[in-house]
C-alpha cells in the first residue's frame, strides 16, 4: 500500500519505540546500564546539555529544596561538543537504546557547526535544541533553520517560554517539541536569590495544564516535569503527548510502580 504524499514519512520524523525518555541533565552524557536498570523502559536516552565550548560549573552551584520539589543551579558543566563526542561516541554507539544529544544553543552558526559534528555518528536518533532563556520567535526560527540536516531536531523549551514561542513552533513544525520544567528562583541562606530549573511533584499540575494546550497544535510533544507515578504518565499519554520525560524521579532509590504497565 502506498502512502499518500501528505502522510509520507519525512526523513526528520522522530520515532520512539517506547513513550518515555529522560530529561536532559538527569542521567549524564551516556547510558550506563549497570547504574540505570530502568533503561529498558525508555524509548531514548537524552544526554546532559552540551555546549560548543567546555563549561565549568557555576561558582554558586546548589540544590535548594522547597515544599514539593527543589531548585537546581549547576551552570550546566560539560566538556564541549568535540570532547563529548570523543569521550562518549563509543558508548552512544553501543547503547541499548537510541541517543538524543541535547545541545545548548548559542548562535545559529555555532549550532550548525555542532549539528554537523554529530551527523554520521552511530545510534544518534535526534538532536535536541536547548534554547537560551530569552529566545524570541525570530531567533527560534534561525535556530531551527540552522539545525536542519540529517537528524531530526527537537526544540526543547522551558514551560515559561511556551506562550511566546508556540505560534512560531507551529509554523516551523520541528520534529518534536519538548516542554521542560520552568525556571524559578529561591533565596539562599544568605538571602541571595538563586535561579535555576525546578524539579519535583509540585511542577506536575502546571505542566499538565500547559501541555493540554500544546498538544492541540498537532505538534509531536514530549512533556517533562514533576512526573512521579504511572498514573501521571498515563494522564499525559491520554492527552496525546508523544512521550513523557522523566526527571528527578530517576534519581530516586525506588521508582515504585512507575514502570509497571
Amino acid at each position: 500500500m502506498w502512502l499518500e504524499d501528505a502522510e509520507r514519512l519525512r526523513k526528520q520524523d522522530l520515532m520512539l519505540r517506547l513513550p518515555m525518555v529522560n530529561t536532559a541533565g538527569t542521567l549524564g552524557f551516556a547510558p550506563n546500564p549497570r547504574k540505570m536498570p530502568f533503561l529498558d523502559n525508555l524509548g531514548a536516552f537524552i544526554t546532559n546539555p552540551i555546549s560548543r565550548r567546555r563549561r565549568a560549573p557555576a561558582g554558586n552551584r546548589c540544590s535548594l529544596p522547597f515544599e514539593g520539589g527543589f531548585l537546581l543551579h549547576t551552570g550546566l558543566q560539560n566538556p564541549g561538543i568535540s570532547r563529548a563526542i570523543t569521550l562518549h561516541k563509543a558508548r552512544w554507539a553501543g547503547a541499548p537504546l537510541p541517543v538524543i544529544v541535547h545541545l545548548l544553543v548559542e548562535t545559529p552558526d555555532t549550532l550548525a557547526e555542532m549539528v554537523r559534528k554529530l551527523e554520521g555518528l552511530e545510534n544518534i536518533l535526534a538532536i535536541e535544541l536547548g534554547l537560551p532563556p530569552l529566545c524570541d520567535p525570530d531567533t527560534l526560527s534561525a535556530f531551527v533553520e540552522a539545525a536542519y540536516g540529517e537528524l531530526p531536531a527537537i526544540v526543547c523549551l522551558g514551560l515559561e517560554q511556551t506562550p511566546a514561542l508556540l505560534d512560531t513552533l507551529e509554523r516551523l513544525a520541528p520534529s518534536a517539541v519538548h516542554i521542560t520544567p520552568p525556571r524559578g528562583a529561591l533565596p539562599e541562606d544568605d538571602d541571595r536569590i538563586i535561579s535555576g530549573r525546578l524539579f519535583g511533584p509540585a511542577i506536575y499540575p502546571i505542566m499538565l495544564h500547559t501541555i493540554s494546550a500544546v498538544v492541540k497544535t498537532g505538534l509531536p510533544v514530549i512533556s517533562s516535569g514533576g512526573v512521579m507515578t504511572r498514573q501521571e504518565v498515563d494522564a499525559l499519554l491520554h492527552l496525546g503527548v508523544m512521550a513523557v520525560g522523566l526527571g528527578s524521579v530517576l534519581w530516586h532509590v525506588d521508582q515504585g510502580c512507575l514502570f509497571v504497565k
Binding site: 540544590s63 549547576t74 558543566q77
Partner: peptide, 22 residues
C-alpha cells in the same frame, strides 16, 4: 555538599576542582 543525583546524572551540583580536574 548536596548530592541530588547520587552519581546517576553528573548533574554538577557537587563538582569540586581537584588537581586532576573537576
Amino acid at each position: 555538599t548536596a548530592m541530588p543525583c547520587r552519581g546517576m546524572g553528573e548533574c554538577g551540583v557537587c563538582s569540586v576542582k581537584t588537581r586532576r580536574g573537576w
